[in-house]
């Protein structure tokens, strides 16, 4: 069919758009090896591996990484429970206020992060809750719910209700049906949603600046380095490692939801 062949101008525009999306990230990889440590000079005057060793020996980087991983793990766990429950309810039936529930779930990411951040902070202030690990988790879990919800609700919609009825007709009770029919059906969607929630939490900086107090997650550490650079090459290396680490859950989530119409991660 002639209409299926793309015009050259479309090819160029689409290709240029994709390049625009990817070249800046690739540039980070080059800068991680540069010998220049005072400016952002291009082209790099020389290449070296020594900044990897320097970064490896920085305790502040490790501490920030550890905190980020802990926060992401717990926020993801909370989001998995809340998001799945919500998706199960919304996809099961038409009930009064159904639209409101989906809106409520989307709200934490539909509103600007600075709003979510300052809102949480003013609650902590009014309720006199001191900043801690748990205040960070509270904020992260709130906006991670939507990612799990999106993935789960798409899968629930395609899981036919007759499957559940058949299980019940064959004598299984609700819990057996949940365990042996429903969970295997939605497991990959949950795993994908969980991975994306993890990536989202691992990367979050705007809300975290309002809920973290003195603690440094990895993004907060990077933000400090961006505002007041101390050792630029270390920032370069950390940036490269962060790109590589966040790639894994995204690729994982993609392969888990591939071939289904669940669009993983839509509406981050």
């Amino acid at each position: 069919m002639p209409s299926d062949r793309a015009p050259l101008s479309l090819k160029i525009a689409a290709g240029a758009g994709l390049l625009f999306l990817h070249l800046p990230i690739l540039l980070i990889f080059v800068y991680a090896f540069t010998t220049e440590d005072k400016s952002y000079q291009w082209p790099p005057p020389g290449l070296t591996l020594k900044w990897f060793a320097v970064t490896w020996n920085r305790p502040d980087v490790w501490a920030a990484l550890r905190l980020s991983l802990q926060v992401a793990a717990i926020s993801t766990a909370v989001a998995l429970v809340l998001g799945t429950l919500c998706a199960a309810a919304v996809s099961r039936a038409h009930f009064f206020g159904r639209e409101t529930v989906s809106l409520l779930v989307i709200l934490p990411i539909a509103l600007p992060g600075v709003v979510t951040g300052i809102a949480l902070r003013s609650v902590f202030h009014i309720a006199e809750i001191p900043f801690s690990f748990w205040t960070i988790v509270l904020g992260h879990a709130t906006f991670c719910v939507v990612v799990v919800y999106n993935n789960a609700v798409a899968r629930f919609r395609r899981t036919s209700g007759s499957l559940i009825e058949a299980s019940m007709d064959l004598g299984a009770d609700s819990f057996q049906t949940l365990r042996h029919v429903l969970l295997p059906n939605i497991a990959t969607a949950l795993l994908a949603g969980g991975m994306l929630a993890f990536a989202l939490s691992f990367d979050e900086v705007i809300v975290t600046t309002f809920t973290a107090g003195q603690q440094q997650t990895l993004p907060i550490w990077m933000l400090e380095e961006l505002v007041r650079p101390r050792q630029r090459p270390v920032t370069n290396v950390v940036a490269m490692v962060v790109v590589l680490v966040t790639l894994l859950p995204i690729l994982g989530a993609y392969y888990l939801t591939r071939g289904t119409d669940a669009v993983a991660g839509q509406g981050k």
């Binding site: 999306l21 980070i28 000079q41 993609y254």
Partner: peptide, 29 residues
């Protein structure tokens, strides 16, 4: 194409901003 859009979407926000600091710097690319 799908991955080509998803990967930048999910790449670290700060890293993306940082990469532009490298690009747009006076001595940059």
């Amino acid at each position: 194409f799908y991955l080509g859009v998803m990967m930048p979407l999910w790449s670290s926000y700060l890293v993306k901003v940082y990469s532009w600091k490298l690009i747009l710097a006076r001595e940059g690319i």
